Amino acid sequence: MKFINYLERITGVSVYPMISLLLFTTVFILVVIYAFKASDRTIKEMENLPLD
């Protein structure tokens, strides 16, 4: 039996892709806002973490 047949049997399965997209978009926007608001000192500290 193909995988699509299993998905057709699940009630309300179409909501899961929308939840995933919304979650990904929210996290992405939050990371972008954090990156733009971070101070130069914080950025420098994060840059040097792998080298320390």
Rank of each mutant, 00 (worst) to 15 (best):
T42F: 05
P17T: 02
R41N: 15
F3S: 06
I19P: 02
N5K: 12
L21I: 11
L7P: 05
F36L: 11
E8G: 10
D40R: 12
V13I: 14
D52Y: 12
T26Y: 06
E8P: 00
F24D: 03
V31M: 08
K2I: 10
I43T: 15
L49Q: 11
Y16E: 07
K44V: 09
L23A: 10
P17Q: 01
A38Y: 01
V31C: 08
I29M: 03
S20I: 13
M1Q: 01
T11F: 03
P17A: 03
I33F: 08
K2M: 09
E47C: 05
Y16H: 08
L30Q: 08
D52R: 11
V31G: 01
F36P: 01
T11A: 07
S20M: 13
M18G: 02
V32P: 04
E47Q: 11
S20C: 11
Y16W: 12
S20Y: 06
V13D: 06
L49M: 15
E8I: 06
V15A: 05
F3G: 03
E45I: 13
E45Y: 11
K44Q: 13
V32C: 05
F28C: 08
V13Y: 00
P17V: 04
E45C: 09
R9A: 12
E45S: 12
L7N: 02
G12E: 00
T26D: 03
N48M: 10
Y34E: 13
P50E: 03
F36E: 10
N48P: 00
V13M: 10
K37N: 14
L23I: 08
F3W: 07
E47K: 14
N5H: 06
A35R: 09
V15M: 06
T42E: 12
Y6D: 11
L51Q: 06
F36R: 10
P50M: 01
V27K: 04
V32G: 04
I33G: 03
V13G: 04
T26S: 10
V31A: 05
E8F: 02
L30N: 09
P50F: 01
F3I: 14
E47V: 13
K44S: 14
N5P: 07
V15G: 01
R9P: 04
G12Y: 00
E45W: 10
I10A: 00
N48S: 08
L51G: 01
S39K: 15
I10K: 06
P17M: 03
N48R: 08
A38M: 14
R9F: 05
T42V: 11
Y34P: 11
L7W: 08
G12L: 05
L7I: 12
L22M: 09
M46W: 15
F24M: 10
T42H: 07
P50K: 02
A38C: 14
S39Y: 07
V27R: 03
L51N: 08
D52H: 12
M18A: 07
K44L: 13
D40Q: 14
